[in-house]
Nucleic acid binder design. Structure first.
Lengths: 163, 163
DNA sequence: TTTGCGGCTTCCCACGATGGGAAGGTCAAG
DNA sequence: CTTGACCTTCCCATCGTGGGAAGCCGCAAA
């Protein structure tokens, strides 16, 4: 089957499938005479494995390890388990960090009246500043261009978790 | 003062200070005759504001908004508060996502004996596969080079939260 | 004064995972 | 045969950060 079909069946974009091949996460696909990549059910299965692993927050590099563990029918289940447990630990650390941010922000926000007056403990907290002796001048209307750029929207989508 | 001093005082790396200037997050620094950038206390203060905002998980673009809010002494505190509240929401979404990953992984790990036998519900869960009819062939010893790369270690540091 | 060193400058490259898009080849249906 | 959907490769951008080179600057010790 073609890459588009494999993509639909696995939930991995064609871009990513080619990328995974390029980086060696998956073996080079077979090719039709035309040059089109050809996938079979086992390939799709592997791609689904990869997608599920990504959904669980593993990096591509870690997934390389998982694929090896999957392929190795003689490795101990404890190897897999410790891999998973280590990942859980990392995820929990991340949660803890975010939790700390939330706590800080909430305590700041709790003290903010949120009315039309300008005094704001949130900004003061970020500035560690009660007066405004050091309040900066207004930034000149910066259209937020990257180094030489002309602004691009392109993916202002859903929250993502990058580890 | 020089950029290195401002960096030490603010906790923002010199690389980042220049980057923030380049992207317009901060105004172009004054220069000595030598061409060296020159910072004053207000600049350092702004950098500290930026660093604290980053630590709270705001993106650089959002910090642009925060700086504007800080500079605008006539804006309502409710503007700041809704900004902060929105951010808290995004943070919580992220926590929820990670929590889901952890729950899934833990339930998988709970069923794994973690002994020296190979049967492993974790791998099976990722593969959605109870037998091993579709178990992939071993990946050829891939030294995990990027497209053309010769591997780089470079920052294998602490867990970070990227939003 | 020369030498040396550390700090500064700009410029380019890399990371990880992903998407956009251009230029061109292929295939099946009409 | 044309059309349109699909495929190929190649390059570029994202976001925030660091690495490192090549070259200038400033200060202090020899």
């Amino acid at each position: 089957m073609n890459i588009g079909r494999a993509s639909k069946l696995s939930g991995v974009s064609t871009k990513m499938i080619r990328y995974y091949e390029q980086t060696g996460l998956i073996p080079k696909a077979a090719r039709h005479n035309s040059g089109y990549r050809d996938y079979d059910d086992a390939d799709v299965h592997r791609l689904r494995f990869i997608r599920r692993s990504r959904d669980l927050g593993f990096t591509v590099e870690q997934i390389g390890g998982l694929l090896d563990l999957w392929a190795d029918r003689s490795r101990a289940s404890s190897d897999v388990k410790s891999f998973a447990l280590g990942h859980i630990e990392r995820l929990k650390e991340k949660m803890t960090e975010i939790e700390a941010m939330v706590r800080t922000l909430e305590s700041l926000a709790d003290h903010c009246h949120g009315d039309d007056r300008p005094e704001c403990p949130i900004i003061d907290g970020l500035a560690e500043n009660d007066g405004d002796s050091l309040r900066p001048k207004r930034r000149e209307p910066q259209r937020f261009g990257r180094p030489g750029g002309q602004s691009a929207r392109h993916h202002g989508g859903a929250a993502k978790v990058t580890l």
